[in-house]
Simulated assay, not measured.
Amino acid sequence: MKIKIDIDSKYDDCYVTIQAKEWTNEVDELVQLLKKKQPKRIVAVQEDRSILLKPEEIDFVFARDRKVFAAINGEFMELKMKLYEVEEMLKKCGFIRFSKSVVGNVNQIDRFELSFNGTLCVYFISGSKEYVSRKYVHDLKAQIMEGGESLDR
């Protein structure tokens, strides 16, 4: 794939042109990527304050006792959303399902350890850790491999 960028003051708006011999999966992925709008911030509540979080700084989001929390550097901040809403909002930012109650940020993963029962222990750059249930290990591997990385690092 070749990329050509033309920046000039003669243009009033931003246009993207894709030139290809035929419609392929790569073209389709590019179109979908261009259409996606990534959330800039997500609102968390801590005590009486509302805090704006950048999706890229969140390690994982989890549900416990009918509440949803974002984990950032070992701190937990409550979100006033359902877990499935957070998952839908953040999937464009590299978040995928780890288990029934956890959605994790693939971009913050540092390393993995396989557990004896088939689950995966994920360690984040911040030092936090979370588990991926057997049901979702395959999806995580696929997401990581798509990015060119390996689980054996």
Rank of each mutant, 00 (worst) to 15 (best):
I7P: 00
K21L: 08
K10W: 09
D110E: 13
R49V: 04
P39I: 10
F116G: 05
Y11S: 05
L79A: 04
T119M: 11
M89C: 11
K135S: 10
Q143F: 12
I96S: 01
D48K: 15
M81Y: 15
F60H: 06
Y84W: 08
A44C: 05
F62W: 06
F69V: 02
M81N: 12
Q143A: 14
Y123D: 00
L140R: 01
E87D: 07
G148N: 08
A63R: 07
Q32L: 14
L120I: 11
L140I: 05
N107C: 08
E57F: 10
E47M: 09
D13A: 08
V122T: 06
C93H: 06
S133R: 10
K135R: 13
K67H: 14
V122N: 00
K21G: 03
F62D: 04
I144L: 13
Y131K: 06
Y15G: 03
V106R: 04
R64T: 05
T24I: 07
K35A: 15
E57Y: 05
I18V: 14
A63T: 10
I125L: 12
L33T: 15
Q38M: 15
L114K: 15
E26K: 04
L79C: 06
A44M: 04
H138Q: 15
I51P: 00
V106H: 02
L53T: 02
E85A: 11
E47H: 12
M145L: 14
D48F: 12
I96V: 13
V45Q: 11
S126Q: 05
I96D: 02
R134G: 05
K40V: 08
L52V: 05
Y15W: 14
G127C: 08
I96N: 05
K36Y: 10
R134C: 09
N105I: 07
L52Q: 04
G74V: 09
L53R: 03
E75V: 07
E88P: 01
G118M: 07
D59P: 05
M77V: 02
G118T: 04
L53C: 05
Q46M: 15
V102L: 02
I125K: 15
K67P: 01
P39E: 08
E146Y: 12
S115T: 08
D65I: 03
V61W: 03
I42E: 00
L151W: 08
I109W: 00
G104I: 09
V31E: 11
L34Y: 14
N117Y: 07
F76Q: 09
I5R: 13
A142D: 12
D48R: 13
S50W: 14
Q32Y: 11
D139K: 12
I144G: 02
A142S: 13
G74D: 13
D152P: 02
A71W: 02
R153Y: 09
D65E: 14
K37G: 07
L90I: 07
G104A: 06
I18R: 10
E146W: 12
E113Q: 09
K10R: 09
K129C: 11
K67G: 00
M89G: 00
D28M: 13
T119W: 06
M145A: 15
G94P: 02
G127V: 06
F69Y: 15
D65F: 09
Y123M: 06
D6A: 03
